[in-house]
Design a protein around this nucleic acid. Structure first.
Length: 931
RNA sequence: GCCCCCGUAGCCCAAUCGGUAGAGGCAGGCUCCUUAAAAGAGUCACAGUACGGGUUCGAAUCCCGUCGGGGGCACCA
């Protein structure tokens, strides 16, 4: 390829010219504060239109690896959307900050000896340089970072709000813990052991309150990951019992940790999904994770050796209607009643089984679906008919769900069927299977059989009837069960938010008053987390902060004189900072509060006139990958609801509309040794692939350094310019579809911009080539059709089709106006292009003689006159096949269209004098004649 | 194993309510421009919608089944 300067016209739109234009406009925008979005009040106060739009990208983690072309896909998508709406006159808030706490910085610190803050801040600078180059229109005054004390001060403050509240079941919402304390003090609510509140010491009181607080300390089995040196939330553990990050084994271990009572909000977290404009897929994943099931608890009396009184085994079932078919009970191996009810003859067998199960890893226990178990020797009484049924211990029943015990109904549950077959236990069908059913357990619907007073009732009626019966006779009650567990909120890490909590001499947690926030992260000699042999289940967590003795031991006056306290040495999980960042974007510099209430209401409050009476408020458009479906998105919703209940925010959901962008993927190639070869240097010949002459195998998937197939936005900007790169990414397909990267295709976007540039600018002189010619009727029709189409496409995130329409319009100009574009076409074309390719659009707009940036409009509006056609061409189908075309006035009535169609030569010929059986006229579309 | 999404030209993708299968890009052919090549301009071809049924005047679109790809859940009682 020749790039000889002598041959290249001086003002051709090349990568060099594009880069010059882009750097200049990026500077202009920054100096002019073009993307500053004013707030109603406070430091960022300005004139605010009532019509606003808050667009947000998912909080990026500033990785040291830098960006590849996949990362900016969503960022460009939000930028186009934001720029489009800004041009139509709306006040648009779009910015980007950093979720900067996290394990990678800490691990990197261990390798390099540099402080995580240093490396993280370096990474942020690199990241900002990279995204600036792409031309994202961010309000840079609103950049925040979770590691800034000015930010995490408020993360700690929110923690205190959560700590200082409880969930009032009767009201269905959170209330201040002080109101609960007042109820105990007044005696309107009894203490657990019935003693008056005044008789309880401070530690005792705190223990009672801890049972209610939304953030509480718990001594409970948690997911301990020695390889990472920390505990993990359930959401961070894969189904095969390993850490999502690092893929290390995770062990169950009992530890004293902070928990968030997210389960209190389970119902609201499920129910409010209905009010969100989110992808159904994400809603389904959240519903599934929360896992609400309606059923009943049923109590079975069970004899225990050497005791006069029987034990009570409580089970949870979603199918109380099948109670007559329960032929045995199963307890989880860890169930506390196992020891009490096991007969002496069975004791050894049970003990052996429990030992064997405890040695199995989570993975073994789940992978091996062969049913195993041991008979306890005990029998329980089925409350509905007095029948004695055997009680087993088996590991297919989990201690962690429901009551850790089930009633087994092999006739209607496949797992129970499998166990019953393995242990030769009886099966009683209690639902009449459908006609022709030849399976094993029948889980479908049908009338109840073999079920006494339930016989003949369908499943739903039977459930209702038996639940009422259980409640009336005291054998159980209807209940709702969730899979969701409370959120483990402690991490044994250095690089996270410190808890605003200290412990007194009795070990009782005491919140640090708001006036002492932020609790800053101290510098320590060794800030690496202590990790262990990944398989060492018995290792002890050791938070790095516990080694900062000077920081841990403090003397504070918390209202009753100076006393010695110990600081909490765990830190918060990575998710904390991202639970509320949209609120801080609104008011990044507010010092009195986490966000000013008026600003919060303006940007994030419900807007019922616009979005309907159920509108929960929140960010107007939130774009990110689907990988956060249950982690970040569930936690952020939970925090929002607590803040809402306490009156700190005006809406009860953080993100009104969510959109999941697809991923950019790439081909990778391996040689015959299985090593990856640089994808860039692979040649394709006849559908086969070669690297340095040797054939290589193609794979498809992620872009990554180790796969040697990374393409960076920096490279693309250098080779083509940012506008070309943006346009190509947006043209590749719909925003929500994953697709392969193809560097060779980028040139198509570049050629388009070159043609457009050439239509407006003389490549030799740089002078404007725009004429005052009045465009013809055809041109105006196409122009207004394009305006209407592009507007609609931008509003619905269909950037690929918007781009295609602009190319069409430009092609028309190229073809019909070789002497230069008429101004009446050139100006709207530039404006329509601006959201996608803002730099070149600004440059052309300026060349067209406009002193003001086009960032705030105008955006062209279509003239309806040019959208209605005078004459419509109707295809005439005969029996569904197109046989002819006729032109008919657009105002023609269906009968007139019918008449014209039937008069058509071809149709007359095919009719051959006969009458059509039927004629279908679709106004504006076609005519179908049925013979 | 269960649930969800997707299969349209060699490739990436359009077709918005069931109404003419093709907007745009890459790659390809031809023509013009050029000493030549590249770039550029113009122009052309290519699939009948993964497959098999069904509903309909009419199906890429709706329904059933099969195959292929992607994702979620996976003893949750």
């Amino acid at each position: 390829m020749s790039t000889d300067a002598a041959e290249m016209p001086a003002f051709r739109y090349t990568a060099e010219l594009a880069t010059e234009i882009e750097e200049r406009w990026q500077r202009e925008w920054e100096e002019r504060g073009t993307f500053h979005a004013p707030n109603p009040v406070g430091p960022l106060k300005g004139d605010v239109p009532a019509d606003k739009l808050f667009v947000q990208d998912m909080f990026p983690y500033p990785s040291g690896a830098g960006l590849h072309v996949g990362h900016p896909l969503g960022f460009i998508g939000t930028d186009v959307f934001a720029r489009f709406h800004r041009m139509t006159g709306r006040n648009v808030l779009h910015t980007m900050g950093f979720d900067a706490f996290g394990l990678p910085a800490e691990q990197y610190a261990v390798q390099t000896g540099r402080h995580p803050r240093e490396t993280t801040e370096d990474n942020i600078r690199t990241y900002l340089r990279q995204i600036r180059r792409v031309g994202l229109g961010h309000d840079e005054r609103r950049r925040i970072s979770t590691i800034d004390p000015g930010y995490y001060k408020w993360t700690q403050w929110i923690f205190l709000q959560i700590f200082n509240s409880w969930f009032d079941e009767a009201a269905g919402k959170a209330r201040p813990i002080a109101e609960l304390e007042a109820e105990f003090a007044a005696g309107t609510r009894a203490t657990p052991d019935g003693r008056p509140w005044s008789a309880l010491g401070r530690a005792e009181r705190e223990k009672v309150l801890g049972g209610y607080r939304l953030a509480y300390l718990s001594e409970a089995p948690v997911n301990w990951c020695p390889g990472l040196g920390t505990v993990l939330a359930n959401e961070e553990v894969t189904p095969d019992g390993r850490s999502e990050r690092g893929d290390f084994p995770v062990f169950r271990r009992s530890l004293r940790q902070w928990m968030m009572r997210i389960t209190a909000y389970a119902d609201r977290l499920i129910d409010d999904l209905d009010r969100l404009d989110w992808p159904e897929k994400v809603k389904a994943m959240q519903r599934n994770w929360i896992g609400r099931s309606h059923g009943a608890r049923v109590r079975f009396a069970c004899a225990r050796p050497g005791a006069a009184e029987p034990a009570t085994v409580e089970v949870f079932t979603t199918r109380p209607d099948t109670l007559f078919g329960a032929t045995y009970l199963v307890l989880a191996p860890e169930h506390p009643l196992v020891d009490e009810i096991t007969t002496p003859e069975q004791a050894d067998a049970i003990a052996e089984y429990r030992r064997a199960v405890s040695r199995k890893s989570e993975l073994d226990r789940q992978e091996n679906k062969e049913k195993t178990g041991v008979f306890t020797g005990a029998h329980a009484v089925n409350p509905v008919d007095g029948r004695e049924i055997p009680v087993y211990v088996a590991d297919y029943v989990l201690m962690g769900y429901g009551t850790g015990a089930i009633m087994a109904v092999p006739g209607q549950d496949q797992r129970d069927w499998d166990f019953a077959k393995a242990f030769d236990l009886p099966v009683i069908r209690t639902v009449q299977p459908a006609e022709g059913f030849d399976g094993e357990a029948y889980t479908g619907t049908g009338p109840a059989i073999n079920s006494g007073f339930l016989d003949g009732l369908d499943v739903a009626e039977a459930k209702k009837t038996i639940t009422a019966w259980l409640e009336e006779h005291g054998h159980g009650e209807g209940t709702v069960q969730f899979k969701l567990r409370d959120w483990l909120f402690s991490r044994q890490r250095y690089w996270g938010e410190p808890f605003p909590v200290v412990y007194d001499e009795e070990g009782t947690p005491v919140p640090v008053p708001e006036s002492m926030l932020p609790i800053e992260l101290p510098d320590v000699d060794d800030y690496s987390p202590r990790t262990f042999d990944p398989d060492d289940a018995n290792s002890e967590p050791s938070p790095p902060l516990s080694r900062a003795a000077d920081w841990v031991e403090v003397e504070l006056d918390l209202g009753d004189g100076p006393k010695k306290y110990r600081r909490e040495t765990n830190t918060m999980p990575n998710w904390a900072g991202s639970c509320w960042y949209q609120l801080r974007y609104v008011d990044p510099t507010e010092t009195e509060r986490f966000v000013n209430a008026e600003n919060e209401r303006y940007w994030l409050g419900p807007r019922t006139t616009e979005h309907g009476p159920q509108d929960p408020g929140g960010v107007d458009l939130y774009i990110g990958g689907v990988e956060h479906a249950v982690l970040h998105l569930l936690y952020a919703r939970f925090w929002q609801k607590v803040l809402f209940d306490l009156g700190h925010v005006s809406g009860d959901e953080p993100y009104r509309r969510l959109f999941n962008q697809g991923y950019i993927e790439a081909y990778a190639y391996r040689d015959d040794r299985g090593s990856y070869v640089p994808a860039e240097k692979v040649e394709e010949r006849d559908g086969r692939f070669f690297f340095e002459g040797a054939e290589v195998r193609r794979e498809y998937g992620k872009m990554g350094k180790s796969l040697k197939n990374v393409v960076t936005p920096d490279e693309m900007c250098a080779r083509y310019g940012a506008d070309t790169f943006r346009l190509y990414e947006m043209s590749m397909g719909p925003m929500d579809v994953s697709r392969p990267w193809a560097t060779k295709d980028v040139v198509g976007a570049q050629r388009f911009l070159q043609r457009l540039w050439r239509n407006l600018v003389d490549e030799e002189t740089g002078a404007l080539r725009v004429t005052d010619e009045t465009p013809g009727e055809d041109a105006l029709r196409l122009l207004h059709k394009t305006i209407a189409g592009v507007r609609d496409d931008f509003a619905h995130l269909r950037y690929n089709t918007a781009g295609a329409k602009l190319i069409e319009l430009n092609n028309f100009v190229t073809k019909h106006h070789p002497g230069g574009a008429p101004r009446a076409l050139a100006e709207p074309l530039v404006l329509l292009l601006a959201p996608l390719c803002p730099h070149v659009a600004e440059e052309l707009w300026a060349k067209l003689g406009h002193a003001e940036s086009l960032a705030h409009g105008p955006f062209p509006a279509a003239d309806e006159r040019y959208l209605v056609e005078d004459v419509v061409e109707y295809p005439i189908q005969v029996n569904g096949k197109v046989k002819a075309r006729v032109a008919v006035a657009a105002s023609a009535s269906p009968d007139e269209v019918r008449a014209v169609a039937l008069a058509d030569e071809k149709v007359v010929e095919l009719l051959n004098g006969g009458e059509p059986r039927k004629v279908i006229v679709v106004p504006g579309r076609l005519v179908n004649v049925v013979l």
